[in-house]
Simulated assay, not measured.
Amino acid sequence: MQADLLNHLQSNPISNMPVLGFFENYPLDKHVVYNKSLILIGTSDYSWAYLSVPEPNDLDSLLEKFGFESLYFANVEEWMIPQLTRNHRIEWKLLTNRYYLPEEIEVEPTDKASGPLDSSHVGYIYQNSAYKDFTSELYISERIARDISAGIWLDDKLVGWGLTHDDGSLGFLNVMSEYRGKGIGEAIFRTLIRGKLENQKPVFVNVEPQNKQSINLLKKLGLEFDRAVSWVKLA
């Protein structure tokens, strides 16, 4: 990424955490600038248009310059939706709340044994995912290869796991139903958080607003609410 774009994004690091994280993992294909606002396009599972718009009045002109070359948008705040859908409809939308770990918060390690995931776990993770409409085995395989992951095994069985998304956020947390209530999810999150901190990377998570159990866990670990953001596919 060009130094001027990187410096611009780093001037507001919390707002731009997913943008910085994505383009640390994937090449920048194209960018569009209007005043201090940006659309940056890169490809993971899809060609994603990441929005960084500190001034709402810039968005219409920014989208006009962009020309909707991609219909997949990330880091979308709710106030952006009317402009995005002026000439398009939403095919699907995944709304989440973003939580992040402030720099001064320390997270203690877990006493539960865990280990990293590998390619042999991809099919199992996908088959047990509640988000098959938003992911694929190829995406999961790539995320395991590119970043940290953690799994917990009991009775010779993988019973809980977590990894990261293409923007570096923690995600894919899942504990098999018969093993819930045993602190496995918390142990996995603690392991992932400490892995990110050891690599000197920001810790943030996107969680659906109705997932109160995960939100309570994030708050327990010291993460704070930042904002609501969506991934949106237009048509």
Results as ranks from 00 to 15, higher is better:
residue 6 L to P: 02
residue 233 K to D: 01
residue 134 F to K: 13
residue 103 E to P: 00
residue 46 Y to I: 05
residue 136 S to Y: 09
residue 14 I to Q: 08
residue 48 W to K: 03
residue 94 L to Y: 11
residue 102 P to A: 02
residue 190 R to S: 08
residue 37 S to K: 09
residue 95 L to S: 12
residue 190 R to Q: 13
residue 9 L to C: 06
residue 134 F to P: 04
residue 117 L to Y: 10
residue 18 P to V: 04
residue 203 V to Y: 07
residue 130 A to K: 15
residue 189 F to K: 13
residue 185 G to W: 12
residue 21 G to L: 09
residue 148 I to K: 10
residue 39 I to C: 05
residue 104 E to D: 12
residue 55 E to Q: 12
residue 200 Q to T: 01
residue 205 V to H: 01
residue 34 Y to R: 09
residue 85 T to C: 13
residue 205 V to L: 02
residue 97 N to G: 09
residue 58 D to P: 08
residue 30 K to D: 11
residue 10 Q to Y: 06
residue 4 D to E: 15
residue 120 S to G: 07
residue 43 T to G: 00
residue 150 A to Y: 10
residue 28 L to Y: 01
residue 152 I to P: 13
residue 174 N to H: 14
residue 161 W to K: 09
residue 63 L to R: 03
residue 76 V to A: 03
residue 220 K to E: 04
residue 226 D to R: 07
residue 84 L to H: 04
residue 1 M to Y: 03
residue 141 S to A: 15
residue 193 I to N: 08
residue 233 K to W: 11
residue 45 D to N: 13
residue 32 V to W: 15
residue 148 I to P: 01
residue 94 L to C: 02
residue 135 T to Y: 11
residue 220 K to H: 11
residue 198 E to F: 06
residue 29 D to A: 10
residue 47 S to E: 13
residue 168 G to S: 02
residue 181 G to E: 04
residue 174 N to C: 12
residue 63 L to I: 06
residue 55 E to S: 12
residue 178 E to I: 02
residue 1 M to K: 07
residue 66 F to I: 03
residue 215 I to W: 09
residue 197 L to K: 15
residue 156 D to T: 12
residue 115 G to T: 11
residue 40 L to M: 14
residue 204 F to Y: 14
residue 9 L to Y: 09
residue 229 V to N: 06
residue 5 L to R: 10
residue 185 G to M: 07
residue 26 Y to I: 01
residue 177 S to Q: 12
residue 46 Y to C: 07
residue 212 K to E: 14
residue 52 S to P: 02
residue 32 V to E: 08
residue 41 I to R: 11
residue 5 L to Y: 08
residue 34 Y to M: 03
residue 98 R to Y: 00
residue 198 E to R: 13
residue 228 A to F: 00
residue 36 K to A: 10
residue 97 N to V: 02
residue 143 R to I: 10
residue 142 E to H: 13
residue 191 T to R: 14
residue 170 L to F: 04
residue 186 E to K: 15
residue 22 F to C: 03
residue 124 Y to K: 15
residue 167 D to S: 07
residue 15 S to K: 14
residue 155 D to A: 12
residue 226 D to Y: 12
residue 74 A to C: 07
residue 19 V to E: 01
residue 155 D to C: 05
residue 58 D to N: 15
residue 19 V to F: 04
residue 117 L to W: 10
residue 111 D to V: 12
residue 197 L to T: 07
residue 107 V to D: 03
residue 114 S to L: 11
residue 73 F to Q: 02
residue 184 I to M: 10
residue 67 G to E: 04
residue 11 S to C: 05
residue 106 E to T: 14
residue 77 E to A: 07
residue 37 S to I: 05
residue 86 R to H: 08
residue 103 E to L: 10
residue 56 P to W: 06
residue 232 V to S: 05
residue 34 Y to P: 03
residue 96 T to D: 06
residue 88 H to S: 00
residue 102 P to W: 01
residue 109 P to C: 05
residue 81 I to T: 03
residue 186 E to Y: 09
residue 151 G to V: 11
residue 142 E to D: 14
residue 54 P to R: 06
residue 9 L to D: 02
residue 12 N to H: 10
residue 170 L to R: 06
residue 151 G to K: 15
residue 3 A to I: 14
residue 202 P to K: 00
residue 205 V to D: 01
residue 171 G to L: 10
residue 130 A to I: 09
residue 46 Y to S: 04
residue 141 S to H: 12
residue 26 Y to G: 01
residue 179 Y to M: 07
residue 7 N to S: 14
